[in-house]
Design a protein around this nucleic acid. Structure first.
Length: 457
DNA sequence: CTAGGGTTAG
């Protein structure tokens, strides 16, 4: 009895240390307890597994599973769920599936959270079909879906470009008696706005109002961003005013949404006003806020103010992320300093950032704009990943350099691969072929573009 | 464990 209540105390202590990110201290407390004869139980180890997943990684957490077995304690469904959540967080789908199989083999029955995590990871890995199978497996086998099951499903469908299915599913589930949470409404409204389904988003917003839930700061920011996306600036500003009145501008989300939207429009003066308003209200800047402001200063060509912000960040112990670097590279390109932009891009390579696609696109485009089409093509060929921006930029700049035949070949290969380029880039090729004395090639290209469009829809 | 803000559009 004494021992059991001591272990309970130990677990409270370990949980608290883990929350404070003090893993070493937690380990030493466990070691001391064992010496005193107070043995950790399954809860102690599960707490540790969860903490290692969040603070170190799934590999480190897996070592705890081994230690647990050595101590003669059988891992349970929570141990495995924590490990799977850790794998999901790192995007390790095969690892997660392995853990799921291992759990089943050891006779531990997966619960709804095991399935939720599996579903979430399938969606995050761009496998909506697999995720959907899991969802219907939960539903058809009556594995008592949790509210999060529905939220993960609706969010996953939206993030994988199936906002329409998400909407249909929402109404279907409603008809079965499912009661959406605020988070469900927010998820769906965001997905519909991003998919351009503004009318449907408004309908869900109305539904939210009638559901008895009060819209929160997230609802407001989501709708406000949608207004800016569709150029309804006045309506957007009204929403911000409303948020200020309701006390929903306690963090940088709302202000950064407005500032970024204005910068995109080239309205840097107004953006600066909002920036000052944000600073006056004493909001602690986070990395996203810094990036938003650095982008604003880059647009204004105020590189001095950019350096000042970077110094601030360093003092606060905030590290630049891939967005910071990309924003700076883009800013350097805009100011015509392609050399420094290229150097910055290579320093990003050295530091081992995983996704540099946008940064490369900026430099390739910058080189083209600066008339260095050969350098642009060289960099283009060296890129391991390319997207519609890469091709649109290169095609456009080839046209600018009057290399219509080369541009046309590249455009045709994109069409064959089902990649849609910006209309302006396609038009530039057609116009170029016409004006340089190849009207029949231009006509042929136009008809191929039309066919590709028809096949897409 | 599931919802909102930041980068490229020539």
């Amino acid at each position: 009895m004494l021992c059991r209540s001591s272990t309970k105390l130990l677990n409270i202590c370990i949980a608290s240390l883990c929350r404070a990110h003090s893993l070493e201290k937690a380990e030493s407390v466990i070691a001391d307890s064992i010496r005193l004869g107070i043995l950790p139980n399954v809860v102690t180890y599960n707490t540790l597994i969860d903490a290692y997943c969040q603070l170190v990684g799934v590999d480190a957490a897996f070592c705890v599973l081994d230690r647990m077995r050595e101590a003669g304690i059988r891992p349970d469904v929570i141990s495995y769920n924590s490990l799977m959540a850790g794998a999901a967080k790192e995007g390790l789908l095969p690892r997660l599936e392995g853990l799921f199989d291992e759990m089943c083999q050891k006779g531990i029955n997966p619960d709804v959270w095991s399935f939720n995590t599996l579903m979430h990871c399938f969606f995050a890995s761009g496998k909506p079909d697999e995720a959907t199978k899991i969802f219907w497996y939960i539903m058809n086998n009556d594995l008592s879906p949790s509210p999060a099951t529905f939220n993960i499903m609706i969010n996953g469908l939206c993030k994988n470009n199936y906002a329409d299915y998400a909407l249909t599913l929402f109404w279907y589930l409603r008809s079965c008696g499912f009661v959406p949470q605020l988070i469900t409404y927010n998820t769906l409204i965001n997905g519909l706005c991003k998919a351009g389904r503004v009318q449907a988003a408004k309908r869900i917003l109305k539904e939210l109002g009638e559901s008895g839930n009060a819209p929160n700061a997230i609802t407001y920011t989501t709708v406000m961003k949608c207004c800016f996306k569709y150029k309804q600036f006045r309506h957007g500003f009204e929403i911000l005013l409303d948020m200020e009145r309701k006390g929903y501008t306690f963090d940088g989300y709302a202000y950064c949404t407005v500032i970024a939207a204005l910068v995109k429009e080239g309205r840097t003066k107004e953006a600066t006003d909002y920036m000052e308003q944000m600073m006056r209200s004493g909001i602690q800047l986070d990395i996203v806020s810094y990036n938003t402001l650095i982008n604003l200063y880059c647009r204004e060509g105020n590189l001095e103010a950019v350096s000042k912000l970077l110094c601030d960040m360093e003092k606060r112990g905030l590290e630049c992320d891939k967005y910071t670097h990309t924003i700076m590279i883009n800013g350097l390109c805009r100011s015509g300093d392609i050399k420094r932009a290229t150097e910055h891009l290579y320093s990003m390579n050295m530091e081992g950032f995983d996704s540099k696609l946008v940064a490369y696109n900026c430099v390739v485009d910058g080189l083209g704009k600066a008339g260095q089409i050969d350098h642009a093509m060289e960099m283009f060929k060296s890129m391991e990943r390319k997207d519609t921006f890469t091709y649109s930029s290169v095609v456009h700049n080839l046209c600018k350099a009057r290399r219509y035949s080369c541009a046309s070949k590249l455009l045709l290969s994109c069409l064959r691969n089902g990649l849609k380029l910006l209309d302006s880039a396609q038009q530039a090729v057609i116009n170029g072929l016409y004006s340089s004395g190849f009207p029949s090639e231009a006509k042929r290209l136009r008809s191929i573009i039309r066919t590709a469009q028809m096949l897409r829809y």
